[in-house]
Design a protein around this nucleic acid. Structure first.
Length: 194
DNA sequence: CCCTGATTCGC
DNA sequence: GCGAATCAGG
């Protein structure tokens, strides 16, 4: 496949929308994410980092004696303690039983942990969660790994309980759908009219 | 291990 | 110009 105007246009559009290179590649078809990234760079899009305040001069053009093939074991002089600001524009929300599950609980056990607020989560996000729970792998606690969604479903005191278990993404503890309900944008937290 | 983008360099 | 291989990170 070649980079026709149409394909480039779609590339620009999707990249502008924040789509990942792999998503764009999948959409375009016939190209890999590497191809997409390479094209993005050639087009001059891309960088949204590296102190964009500067316009010219040495950005990172340091001496790079990398003419020779790289031995697998290379020294890594880690000398760049950049203070990392972590401004998460979302308020963590502890997992709560979904309405569908609410009826099944209240077994004969200890009082359940307070459900802070049976929240007003985006209806869409909730719907997505309900969908995804059907496809959940229903893992037990012991089956959870670093890359399985740890969202609990049901009530631990009943047999109706499992962990989502779907693949997590990017270091988060949950799958995409559950991240959606766990981290709500601040904007959607405001008063629900009255 | 999954994913992300960034860079290099032979083609 | 292209993109696989590689690098670097979450």
């Amino acid at each position: 496949m070649s980079w026709t105007d149409e394909r480039v246009e779609l590339l620009k559009k999707m990249w502008g929308e924040g789509q990942s290179a792999s998503q764009i590649a999948k959409e375009l078809g016939g190209v890999t994410r590497n191809a997409v990234i390479g094209k993005v760079h050639r087009l001059g899009l891309s960088n949204r980092a590296t102190t964009s305040t500067k316009s010219d001069s040495a950005t990172k053009a340091e001496a790079k004696p990398k003419a020779a093939p790289k031995p697998k074991a290379a020294a890594k002089p880690k000398a760049d303690p950049m203070p990392e600001m972590k401004t998460e524009p979302a308020v963590p929300q502890r997992p709560a039983a979904t309405p569908a599950n609410r009826k099944a609980i209240i077994p004969a056990g200890q009082p359940l942990p307070p459900q802070p607020s049976a929240n007003e989560i985006s209806p869409e996000a909730l719907a997505k969660v309900n969908e995804v729970e059907k496809k959940a792998k229903k893992l037990t606690l012991m089956e959870l790994t670093e890359r399985t969604c740890k969202w609990p479903v049901g009530d631990p005191a009943t047999d109706h309980f499992w962990f989502c278990g779907l693949p997590v993404q990017a270091g988060k503890p949950y799958c995409e759908a559950h991240v959606g309900v766990a981290f709500q944008p601040m904007s959607s937290r405001r008063d629900r009219r009255r």
